[in-house]
Every structure is written in structure tokens, then in C-alpha cells.
């Protein structure tokens, strides 16, 4: 009836109806486009034609093999037989470098990522940001959290909150808890726990009574052979691999018999951990 009514209009008015045609079509298209909004679902944040995304997975090896947790089968550089029970850590400020000087920091607040070998969901990181396509030469990140972001009480929910670093020891959060056990020299059975924890160190004036300052022990990791090309619309799979034995190896041979089971109040030991961390990670980029 609406169409017949239009056909009855004089030519002058039919000319106007061409505008009406367009209006109806425009409205129809707009309504169709808006249909997705009617169901109340959030749009999926997929890479579009001008961007790409990355997905980072985390794996943990000892002597190039997946870790056999809770099993006393490894020997570190110092000759300590040891096992690993669990590893929990933060990485942050993941940065993608191009050869033209462009550095793309994954700069959302979600850039502080928690990894836990007991929680599979933490071992895959769907990076929030859309990334500019192109060729990137390398990847770097902060192991731990930089001081300006390492703020006490910023995580209130588990599992991150359980990484808190006590205020008296400098506050913020553990960068890492690597918990295991080793067999001390002279022992044949009785393993002793080691809590290989890294975070803010302390400067003591008259140990252990007076702390005069704190030292931030986070460090930057530049991943070797981490160049890749990112195509528009692509989600790039990047695997970051922690080689656990290297924490105890290079440049410092870390001996559990010397440093014992706990180091949160031992800056000498934590400095060794920090300096050994430079080559603990490698990367695999999937085509």
C-alpha cells in the first residue's frame, strides 16, 4: 500500500521519492548493521585489516626437556641435585622493536602478566592490544615489574595478590617464586626446600636491625632470535620458554648449599638471580 501510494504521486514528487528510496535503503542498512547490538553481546575484539594480534604462551624446561615436577632428577651447575615444585612469576612491559626505531610497548594495564605452572590458564596470554602489522626485529620484556608500577595493594584478587612482597622488605610484589627442594651435600635422602624468590632487596645498616634502603631487582630481557613479520588480520603465536637450569648457571654458579632455602632478605643472592636471568628465556615464533 505504501508503494502504491508512492506511485500515485506526481513526477515532481516522484523525484523526491528517489530521496525517499535512498532514505529507506539507508535506514534498512543501518538497522541491519545495528542488529548485532540488539542482542546485548559485546563485539569480539578481533584484529582488523589494519592491525594484528599476538598470543604469548609460556613453557618451562630443564635441560631442554619439559619439567618433571616434584621429582629429584636434576643437577644444577653447582652439583646440587634438585627438583622443582612450582614456578610463579610476572613479566611486564613486553616491547616489540622495529629496525626503523619504532618500539611498540604493549601498554595496557594488562601488560603485567602472571604465570603459574600450577594454573594452565595463566600460561597463555591473549595480548589485549591490537598491534601494527609489519616486520619486527626483536622482543624484549621486563622480568618482574618496574618500580613505578610495582605498587603494593594493586592486586586484590588471587592469584596475583598472593605474590605480595611484605612492606618491611620493600613492598610491591614478588617478581618470581621458584619453589623446589635440593639434596644438601652429605645427605642421601633428606631434601630441603629452597624458595628461590626474587623481588625488592634491602640495604641493611646493621644487619638485621636496620634497613636503610631498597633495591629494585627487576631486569630487562632481550629475547634472542625474536624477529617476526606480522600480517594484517593475523594473530601471531609466540612461545616464551624459561630454561630453569640457567637461573643457577651463568654468569654466577648458584649453590644451594651456600645460599640455603630462602633469599628474600639476601640481596647478594638476589643480585645473582637477577644477573643470571639475562639468558633464562628464549622464544619460538610460530609461522
Amino acid at each position: 500500500m505504501f508503494r502504491n501510494l508512492l506511485n500515485t504521486l506526481p513526477y515532481q514528487e516522484q523525484c523526491h521519492t528517489s530521496v525517499l528510496d535512498r532514505l529507506i535503503l539507508f535506514m534498512s542498512v543501518m538497522i541491519i548493521l545495528s542488529l548485532s547490538g540488539c542482542d546485548g553481546e559485546e563485539p569480539i575484539d578481533e584484529p582488523d585489516n589494519q592491525s594484528a594480534k599476538i598470543r604469548i604462551s609460556f613453557s618451562h624446561l630443564i635441560d631442554d626437556q619439559p619439567i618433571d615436577f616434584d621429582t629429584l632428577k636434576y643437577v644444577n651447575e653447582a652439583g646440587n641435585p634438585y627438583m622443582v615444585n612450582e614456578i610463579q612469576y610476572f613479566i611486564s612491559d613486553v616491547t616489540l622493536f622495529r629496525n626503523d626505531g619504532f618500539a611498540r610497548i604493549i601498554d595496557d594495564w594488562k601488560d603485567i602478566h602472571y604465570v603459574d605452572t600450577d594454573l594452565p590458564a595463566t600460561q597463555t596470554w591473549e595480548v589485549y592490544d591490537k598491534i601494527e602489522p609489519g616486520t619486527y626485529d626483536s622482543i624484549a620484556f621486563t622480568f618482574g615489574i618496574v618500580p613505578e608500577k610495582n605498587i603494593s595493594f594493586m592486586f586484590v584478587n588471587p592469584p596475583e595478590k598472593d605474590m605480595f612482597w611484605p612492606e618491611y622488605l620493600g613492598g610491591g610484589y614478588h617478581y618470581m617464586k621458584l619453589n623446589g627442594k635440593w639434596l644438601p651435600e652429605g645427605q642421601t635422602v633428606q631434601t630441603i626446600p629452597f624458595d628461590f624468590h626474587l623481588g625488592r632487596g634491602q640495604v641493611y645498616f646493621s644487619y638485621p636491625d636496620s634497613i636503610t634502603g631498597f633495591i629494585d631487582n627487576q631486569f630487562n630481557v632481550s629475547l634472542p632470535a625474536s624477529g617476526f613479520h606480522l600480517n594484517s588480520g593475523e594473530t601471531k603465536e609466540i612461545e616464551m620458554i624459561m630454561h630453569v637450569e640457567k637461573w643457577f648457571k651463568d654468569p654466577h654458579v648458584y649453590d644451594h648449599d651456600v645460599f640455603g632455602g630462602y633469599i628474600m632478605q639476601n640481596q647478594e643472592a638476589m643480585l645473582m638471580v637477577k644477573e643470571n636471568g639475562h639468558n633464562v628465556f628464549t622464544v619460538k615464533i610460530k609461522d
Binding site: 508503494r3 528510496d21 538497522i31
Partner: peptide
């Protein structure tokens, strides 16, 4: 086109 537009409009309206 009129018919198509009106039908789409009504479908969309009904959906919403």
C-alpha cells in the same frame, strides 16, 4: 527496493 526496504525494516524492528 521499496518492498525489500520495508521487509528489512520490519524484520529489524521485530528483532529488536
Amino acid at each position: 527496493l521499496y518492498s525489500f526496504g520495508i521487509i528489512i525494516f520490519l524484520i529489524a524492528l521485530a528483532a529488536c
